[in-house]
Amino acid sequence: MNLKMKYSCLILLVFTFSASHGAVDFGFAGDILTSTGNILKSVISKSLKLNQSPDDFFEEFKNILIGYPFEPGFMFVSTLCSIVVSEENIKPRIRPSIEKMNYVLKTKDRNISVPLNDPVELWSLDDFNRDWPTVIMVTGWTTNISEGTAADSIYDAYECRGNVNFVLIDTAGFVDTIYSWAAFNTEEIGNILADSLAILTESEYDMENITLIGHSLGAQICGSAGRNFYNKTNKLLPKIIGLDPANPCFDMGESLTGLYRGDADFVIVLHSNPGIFGKADPLGDIDFYVNGLRPKAPGCFTITCSHGRAVEYYAESVYPGNEHNFMAVKCNSLSALEQNSCKGIPIPMGYATPTNVKGNYFLKVNKKSPYGKNSTKNFVPICQVFNDSMSYN
């Protein structure tokens, strides 16, 4: 899309947005032009100050028209849900039934399902290599393992590295019900996962080899698993990676607190849809704000797309040779980053994030794959299975 077409689209979008929000009266063309002009003037002024490209300019407008209007509504829903949950006035109509849920150990040749209430069977499988690290992935609301997407994209990346036990949790629809019921279920499912991990570590499996990864509600389940594991064993899991942890219903100090620093020895959080489907608050030891606090990810036209981008960003960082695709700088805002006011040492976001750093880090990404600004142009993932003698970080 050339610059002329983009500006034409922007004017049309502002026109529609202003009308739908009562900012203009179609009986007065002058009001329409004034409203449109004021918005355009503000954004163009900022764009010129930051020397933004037409693409950046267009992305800024999409955030104004597509992303930001959702934030007040989601804030209200989240607050209301948190109050109701804390008062214990309602209970989920559908509660987890452990006998219907499964672990799925993914291998190159097959997927092996084991009931969640029989973790000993899982850890005893011939296909579970006790000398390898174990990654446990928990998907979010309406993204279960049968649909692929989040789970498969991250598995493919880890399988490309080789020498890893990759386990998914099949929640059998218990996080695919009405959202408020699903939110209730995260704590209980997390407790079940904690029991299984306690059994694994008691069998002399090295706890330092365990990593939990969760997307959306799955990230909140991982937080629950980490807290409950500590309560059962008095030990902290080494690492939890939260990919855009779910926002609605999860407020600190209420019944559903969700993932937070302290749930593992090191908690990493990637934010891609802050303030809407994903939490905007810093939650981990280190929080990465992709495109700052803007709720719409570059290249996305929906908030659902933006919420899922955290998974794609992380998966890209796992592929061998792409560990440093996403370089972030400790900063207070995206604007400060764009003005080169953040002078810290850049660190990689995702697979290679060092565990000795803390704070809020900001970065920008590309609109399409490869998303990392530091990636090789025209990147195509090429799998290379590491030799057994090579280390897994």
Rank of each mutant, 00 (worst) to 15 (best):
T186A: 06
T201L: 07
V114C: 05
S146W: 14
A198E: 15
R130I: 00
T142F: 11
D152C: 11
I112C: 07
N209T: 12
V175R: 06
L122S: 07
F166W: 05
S203R: 15
K108D: 15
L200W: 00
I145D: 02
S180N: 09
W132S: 00
R161W: 11
V138I: 12
I169R: 09
I189S: 06
S196P: 05
E208F: 03
V164N: 00
D156R: 12
R110E: 13
N185H: 08
K106Y: 11
L122K: 07
K106P: 08
M207V: 13
T171G: 07
I199W: 09
A172F: 11
D127H: 07
I189N: 03
S124E: 14
V164R: 02
E202S: 14
F166H: 00
K106R: 15
S203N: 15
V135E: 00
G140W: 02
S203I: 12
T142S: 14
W132N: 04
L212I: 06
T143S: 10
A182L: 08
K106T: 12
T149V: 14
I154R: 03
N163T: 04
E159I: 12
P119F: 04
I145L: 02
T139K: 10
T134N: 05
S146H: 13
G140N: 02
A157P: 06
T177V: 12
K106S: 11
F128A: 00
T171I: 08
D176C: 14
L193Y: 05
N209P: 10
V138P: 01
L168V: 10
A157L: 03
N144F: 13
T177K: 02
F128W: 03
V175C: 11
I145E: 04
I192D: 02
D118R: 08
A157V: 02
I145G: 01
K108P: 10
F184P: 05
D127V: 08
S203H: 15
G190P: 08
I199Y: 10
S203D: 15
D118C: 10
G173M: 09
I145H: 00
D127R: 11
L212F: 11
W141I: 01
R130F: 00
T149N: 15
N111A: 09
M137L: 14
L193F: 04
A182Y: 04
E208N: 12
F128M: 01
A157K: 04
I145P: 04
N129W: 01
R161D: 06
I169W: 01
V120W: 13
G173A: 05
T201D: 10
N209K: 15
V164W: 01
S180T: 12
W141C: 03
